[in-house]
Design a protein around this nucleic acid. Structure first.
Lengths: 244, 244
DNA sequence: TCGCGGACATAACATAGGTTATTTCGGGGT
DNA sequence: ACCCCGAAATAACCTATGTTATGTCCGCGA
């Protein structure tokens, strides 16, 4: 089954301009599409994949297990992103990739990506840059994990997801879909589920946002940014990517 | 002033084989060399550099400040590495780069790197890969910061530095130079200096290593790996990069 | 309609880790 | 030989966060 890489083009164009033939090359990338269920593993630590995954709809996440049961979520991925683009140059997966929600995923053979970049050398830089932004987000998360207290970590995460989803047109007014349980939130932010809940209560009392039923509504963007100590520079979205 | 990029070649060849003309291209990269003192800033968050830095001798580190005084160290860099290679595609620095020790640094214009990669397309993949390994290390640190307790975090850091330095021939028998104060260690691992000291004591009582005067001596590699829950896969050093 | 399970909430308690302060040690300069 | 100063060590105390346990709410399937 083959399909349309539209979300990828939209994502890349949210940062750089593409030439028509580059856009065409991206759109006609040979994709194998699969609809996956929530919480389903896609690639596992230790695998040696020959293809990369493009998120077309829904959310994906990357994680690593430690000591068998403790989980650290490393990243959340939104439509248009290629979570394991790195496997293009790192043969063995050092972490796992899974769906968060039900999701439509497009699989692209590495060969197809290499061919595309050979035909359009400028796209090499564009993809490389995507992996560098990925790394920039890791760095910011490191700062949170190492040096921010729980409430600020949560607030920061909310800011980040809002800006990223807004950039690809998935924020409606001040609302985003953010179907993350408190346990998943804790696994991403290095917190226990209980403490995640506590910190969420604390934040709630400040009326900065509403977070329920997998929806995040921003009530006070400036206040939330302040609580989070959030500066969107690290997302490298040209404009400054601020908004609501 | 111009100089020799030998350490870069050695570093890259610790992972991939290079063709003679690629090696030659790397070695003749136009370098401006400067000798810097310890703890000296090289590039600062917000800068828009037109060059990248190659560590020739000594150690460098990347860090981010939060709330003005709290510091999170993001990475340590050893000879042959290019800590801010990412600035090739991300125009604005989202963190700062500084020396840890006295260091000899080679500055390379982005233009020179782009030219080199245009002449030797395979080198693009090699450099890209370096930035991907960088990101893999960030991920592993995230796991430590989020899910490992202080002693394991320290042990893990020691394992990592040993393996990395060993790969470029800077481990002598079971000894590496690791000129990091306890405060710097804490800033890297998300700990206070006091707790870093406490955890170090705890580890010391297990006789896994000796760490003093900026030297780390491994007494029990298997035991240290166990305490750290260390698996070198994430360093992507082909062989497995294990040793002592 | 009932009953079940997942997500959320809350309470009581345990502990890893942070803070502040003081002391010791050791090397480099005068 | 003496002084200084940065790094390390240690102690007392505080707090953020983890753990275990239990209860509530609500949507969904039988």
């Amino acid at each position: 089954m083959s399909g349309d890489a539209g979300p990828l083009v939209r994502k890349l164009e949210s940062i750089v301009e593409l030439a028509p033939e580059e856009r065409e090359g991206l759109r006609t990338l040979p994709l194998t599409i699969r609809d996956l269920r929530p919480q389903q593993d896609i690639v596992h630590e230790g695998d040696r994949p020959t293809q990369s995954c493009l998120v077309l709809e829904g959310f994906a996440l990357r994680y690593k297990l430690v000591g068998g049961h403790r989980r650290q979520i490393l990243a959340f991925h939104i439509p248009g992103e290629i979570p394991d683009l790195q496997s293009l140059h790192l043969k063995t997966m050092d972490h796992s990739l899974a769906t968060l929600t039900a999701a439509r995923i497009g699989f692209i053979q590495h060969r197809a990506l290499h061919d595309l970049m050979a035909r359009h050398p400028r796209l090499t830089g564009v993809f490389w840059r995507e992996t560098l932004i990925d790394a920039a987000i890791f760095r910011e998360w490191m700062v949170g994990l190492g040096r921010r207290r729980a409430p600020a970590r949560i607030a920061h995460f909310f800011c980040e997801m809002f800006v990223r989803l807004d950039a690809i047109g998935l924020a409606k007014d001040r609302v985003i879909r953010l179907p993350v349980t408190q346990e998943e939130l804790g696994d991403a932010l290095g917190l226990s589920a209980v403490h995640t809940n506590r910190s969420l209560q604390e934040l709630r009392s400040q009326n900065l946002f509403t977070f329920e039923g997998g929806r995040l509504v921003i009530n006070d963007w400036e206040g939330l940014k302040r609580a989070a100590d959030f500066d969107p520079l690290y997302l490298h979205q040209g404009s400054g990517g601020d908004a609501p």
